[in-house]
């Protein structure tokens, strides 16, 4: 399947300032991330890593500066954007009274994803048998994390925002996560990883940027190769098709992006051309 490079970066922030009341979350961030790139966001506690991810997810509006995520305005086009973004945060976003399977199914259906991928995604995260029918309230913190990751895997959005993704996971799940991030990168998914545990992530990311005091204060290259181009094929329920995604054929379930969700290589979106940047005064 032929694919062409998008005309816009996956993430473009220019002099981005975000506030919580009068408290600055971001104090003028400049960041550009190419489609298909995996980037590590590092920095001390309270530096603004989580806020940066939440701005990219459209959860926090900019007070000033410019922002474009997947070619969309994260405020005015937030609903379109959110269906194409997956945020793994400190919270698992689970409903305690729903079972594991019901939680994953709701997350996938709400985002307009393909429910055929749920079984494979749950299996990949060791969520099988009776565990699927277990209420989320009875899960351990690590199991809740696995459910959140299973939802992300089943949805397979175009931009993954992972906040301390290894936290709470055992060694086996960490390996699974590392493979998943590698697979996502190989499939052309853009991944931002905010983490203190850089030893787990450095081998997965092409570069690292350091956030301090709400600003980008440093950048360095890392070992992992970066695609930087979008090899995404069309949505597929059964697996991935062709090109750089071949390595994922053995994966249970996920395709390169959720059906019903526009590919990042698609043309202009509903009311704003691709690549247009939101200007906030």
């Amino acid at each position: 399947m032929a694919s062409e490079a998008p005309s816009h970066p996956a993430i473009l922030l220019h002099d981005a300032v975000a506030l919580s009341g009068r408290f600055p979350l971001l104090a003028g961030v400049d960041l550009e991330v190419a489609v298909g790139e995996t980037v590590l966001i590092e920095g001390p506690n309270g530096a603004g890593k989580t806020s940066l991810l939440r701005v990219c997810a459209g959860l926090v509006a900019l007070a000033s500066g410019e922002a474009s995520v997947l070619g969309l305005d994260p405020v005015r086009q937030r609903n379109q954007l959110r269906r194409r973004v997956g945020l793994l945060s400190h919270a698992s976003h689970l409903y305690d009274d729903l079972t594991v399977r019901e939680n994953v199914k709701f997350a996938v259906r709400a985002a307009g994803g393909d429910t055929d991928r749920i079984a494979g995604a749950c299996e990949r995260w060791g969520l099988a048998g009776r565990l699927l029918k277990t209420s989320a309230s009875k899960l351990s913190a690590g199991q809740r994390r696995r459910v959140a990751l299973a939802s992300l895997t089943a949805r397979w959005p175009e931009l993954w925002l992972l906040d301390e993704p290894h936290a709470g996971l055992d060694a086996s799940a960490r390996d699974t996560l590392d493979r998943l991030i590698g697979d996502a990168g190989a499939a052309g998914v853009t991944v931002l990883i905010a983490s203190h545990e850089t030893e787990f992530v450095e081998s997965l990311a092409a570069r690292a940027v350091t956030v301090t005091g709400g600003r980008i204060t440093g950048a360095r290259s890392l070992g992992a190769p970066s695609l930087g181009v979008p090899p995404l094929g069309p949505p597929s329920a059964g697996g991935l098709t062709g090109g750089p995604t071949d390595g994922l054929d053995a994966l249970p379930g996920p395709g390169p992006c959720s059906p019903g969700v526009a590919s990042p290589i698609a043309g202009p979106t509903a009311d704003r051309p691709a690549g247009e940047v939101a200007h906030v005064a």
Binding site: L59, N79, H90, A91, H93, D96, A110, A111, R144
Partner: peptide, 18 residues
């Protein structure tokens, strides 16, 4: 039910029509 475990953020992130 939406205030436990960040569920409100979860439902916002889903892109469901408000």
């Amino acid at each position: 039910v939406e205030s436990v475990d960040g569920a409100r953020d979860g439902i916002r992130l889903s892109g469901l029509d408000p």
